[in-house]
Write a protein that binds this DNA or RNA. Structure first.
Lengths: 155, 155
DNA sequence: CTTCAATAGTTGAACTTTCTACTATGGTAG
DNA sequence: CTACCATAGTAGAAAGTTCAACTATTGAAG
């Protein structure tokens, strides 16, 4: 349905089109990256992201809540995800000395190995379906835009 | 880790930053829109999208497979989703006259009502967290970029 | 007309995520 | 010191998604 440009309640056709393209694109990209990653490794994209965060942290260790915050996952999602990954030997949990309530999650050697093994093909998949598909300018704007969105979701 | 600009395997720091911002932004946006929508209605974002597609189709009806394609969902996800929505009276299924294998899914009056009731607040949430947060140019580029990504995921 | 591959959709089990309630520790105000 | 509220994390059930196997129909080849 055609909307008037001045309507503040609805979206203009152009806004609508961008929003739809965004929804569809993220759905397809997510599905594609997951499929590629699961074909090439036995990690899901979510698990891969957990490994990345840990690998970039001092002592390859993070508190459960830091993991939750940086991945934008719920607390209980992190608990379950890490429990499954711990069962597979990718990470270990140990209670936190500084804060008796806290739990540290650390990468194991097997976790590092899994990440190193999966990374090259995953990066190439990200290139093939996102980075190399866009102009450098588009990619920059995309990043800037999503940064603003992240902030707006904080409020 | 700092990567060389000329490395074709890894991402440059700038590319990396955009990619991370994208991942985090989509995660937060999705979570926020879902939360808003579920507070204001009893629809999930996925269900809302189903209702939108149906509402825009001739006779407010689509084949299960068209629904799957346009939403980028798996067949079985559509089956389960529609079964649940049918139990709640939002849609009905009827077998397709033209193709004996096919199933048509149609919006009910209750489905239309649910969509109409949810739309204004949902649109305002999309505005608040995406549309109004970006410059018009950013939004356009975002849409164009994600359109390219959708295409690249087809291959 | 029959065979056969391809397409449409469903089903139930396995897995993942969310929701709700819970335990335990930490910090702070009286 | 002792309430008390906030924070950290977990546990199990409910809800949603994926996976693999299945039925049924269609369309095309012989």
């Amino acid at each position: 349905m055609m909307m008037e440009e001045t309507d503040v309640l609805w979206l203009t056709d152009e806004q609508q089109a961008s929003w739809r393209a965004f929804l569809e694109g993220t759905a397809r990209l997510n599905e594609t990256l997951n499929r590629d990653l699961e074909n090439d490794s036995d990690l899901s994209l979510n698990e891969y992201e957990v490994l990345v965060r840990l690998s970039e942290s001092p002592h390859r260790t993070l508190r459960m809540s830091q993991l939750a915050d940086s991945l934008a996952y719920s607390r209980s999602r992190v608990t379950h995800t890490i429990r499954r990954m711990e069962e597979r030997g990718l990470v270990v949990r140990e209670s936190c000395v500084a804060d008796g309530r806290g739990v540290n999650c650390a990468l194991t050697e097997a976790g590092v190995a899994a990440l190193v093994a999966a990374a090259p093909r995953h990066v190439s998949s990200v290139r093939r379906h996102l980075v190399d598909v866009l102009t450098p300018e588009q990619l920059v704007v995309l990043g800037q835009a999503m940064e603003r969105v992240s902030l707006a979701c904080r409020t």
